[in-house]
């Protein structure tokens, strides 16, 4: 399973492992998006992401947007080198 999530107090902790790419976004979106609004806070751990592409970037953008709509406070607690590089390339658009 490339994604683990647990709810502690008022926070949903989500950790993505492996690829954050076109090969995984459909599955990740299916897991993640329903959790929006389940708790006041969402913490996203991206430190175990090995690869990220445009589809992954778009997924992060959607999560950010949906969090705003649902009134969930989103924070990224960790990001791997692959994530950092991708975000830098687009000048941190999604975070």
């Amino acid at each position: 399973m490339p994604i683990t999530s647990e709810i502690l107090d008022d926070t949903v902790h989500v950790r993505i492992e492996g690829e954050l790419t076109i090969y995984t976004v459909a599955e990740l979106a299916g897991e993640l998006l329903p959790q929006m609004g389940a708790a006041p806070r969402l913490e996203l751990d991206l430190s175990q992401v090995t690869e990220m592409d445009g589809a992954g970037l778009q997924l992060l953008a959607v999560i950010q947007r949906e969090a705003g709509i649902a009134g969930t406070a989103l924070s990224v607690t960790g990001q791997s080198q692959a994530v950092t590089q991708a975000l830098q390339l687009c000048r941190g658009a999604a975070s």
């Binding site: 976004v25 445009g54 589809a55 778009q58 953008a61 959607v62 947007r65 000048r91 658009a93 999604a94």
Partner: peptide, 23 residues
């Protein structure tokens, strides 16, 4: 020099397909 990522054409969640590109 500068990059701006545009995400505003991503459709609402109920009609969004994660494998389609709106970037």
């Amino acid at each position: 020099m500068q990059v701006t990522t545009l995400t505003d054409s991503i459709p609402p969640m109920d009609s969004w397909d994660p494998e389609s590109c709106y970037l």
